[in-house]
Design a protein around this nucleic acid. Structure first.
Lengths: 216, 216
DNA sequence: GTCTATAGACTGATAGAC
DNA sequence: GTCTATCAGTCTATAGAC
């Protein structure tokens, strides 16, 4: 039996704001649109959050910790096996990508998909009040950097920076619009199966990371 | 000697709109901001273009043909060598990526960099009036599809759809914010050298494309 | 073609009753 | 905490003089 009470005004605002910010961006979303969809009064958003910018930040803070903690915890697990069992490149890739792709495809919580859409968007939109979001994800990437370097020791740091950037680009477009790969492939690629997407991306990126260093 | 006359009102509006749309997005850009930066009257934009949406479309139409014609012409060159000299995977990748990355880094025309920023953004923003732009680029990708398939014949169509999508994601983030790779790598990667970026991406993607087909 | 002036609607934010 | 009412500013778009 679900004893879940009706959601609070605050949560209803957060849910509606998350959906609208993800769909239309910061500037394309009005507080009236948010409160209309949430079924609450316009003044409530200022009472609970203070301003539109603060609401946006609250939307982002609600989930960002969970996803990145999961990625770092998976990395910790890999490194806890000790120096005689270093994690493979594929394992590091899965820890880096898996939580993001799986949360983005969760069917029981549409909010996660929307949040990930927002995260993917922040990787191509510069001034849209997403600098804090971007920074947090960048810190996680920096934590993974040495793990990747150990898994692909023939690379110079410069090469790894490039390849990690390429990888983040692929991941970002996947979560910014998960349905697109399915549409463009006319249904051949299934967006609703994160494990399949993950499998393909890990194989692709692993070979890419193992490519030789450019000579010139 | 440069006999370049002063730019017309129409061109000044297009230049300012391109810069502001690229920087702040469609909703984040006001016509007053555009006309202010262009040094023209607000009513001029409606006289020359009719509406904000039409101005956005004009900004996009001004350049989109050039870049994609260059990519397709390079592909035609490769295929004109005849069936006994099929283009290599690296050659197809360079035709697909080269024009985009080089125009994005042109130093003599800041407008191209801004336009490419807009293109990169359109790959992660869904509703921002960029569907036409996205469609045009998608058509080019579809033209390249069989060329890639011939260059990597061991792949199933499904695998190629995935990998092409991954590649487009990498390319999009590169042009959406060319400086980021340089900042994150603390200067190790040079954003102002498109040939270096291209070299790294081609090597990375070529090995990724050559990866074996996932088994399961 | 370029300008001023303004219409008409929407924006984020706030004051104050309950 | 939630509401109404409203402020002050912005927005796109247009009418009409020059």
């Amino acid at each position: 039996m679900t004893t879940q009470t009706a959601k609070s005004t605050k949560d209803r605002i957060l849910d509606a704001a998350e959906a609208l910010f993800a769909e239309h961006g910061y500037d394309g979303t009005s507080l009236r649109g948010v409160t209309g969809q949430a079924g609450v009064n316009l003044a409530a958003v200022h009472y609970h959050f203070g301003s539109k910018a603060a609401l946006f930040e609250a939307v982002f803070r609600r989930r960002v910790e969970d996803v990145n903690a999961e990625r770092l915890s998976k990395l910790d697990e890999l490194e806890a096996r000790g120096p005689e069992h270093p994690p493979s490149l594929e394992e590091v890739l899965e820890a880096f990508l898996g939580p993001v792709l799986r949360l983005s495809a969760r069917r029981d919580d549409e909010g996660w998909r929307r949040f990930m859409q927002l995260v993917g968007r922040c990787n191509s939109v510069s001034g849209e009040h997403m600098e804090p979001l971007r920074q947090v994800f960048q810190q996680v990437a920096a934590r993974f950097f040495p793990a990747f370097l150990r898994a692909v020791p023939h690379l110079r740091e410069k090469d790894l920076y490039y390849r990690l950037h390429f990888l983040i680009g692929s991941m970002s477009t996947l979560i910014a619009d998960p349905l697109r790969i399915q549409i463009h492939s006319e249904g051949l690629c299934r967006s609703d199966d994160p494990d399949e997407v993950l499998r393909h991306l890990v194989i692709y990126a692993a070979e890419g990371f193992r490519a030789p260093t450019p000579v010139r």
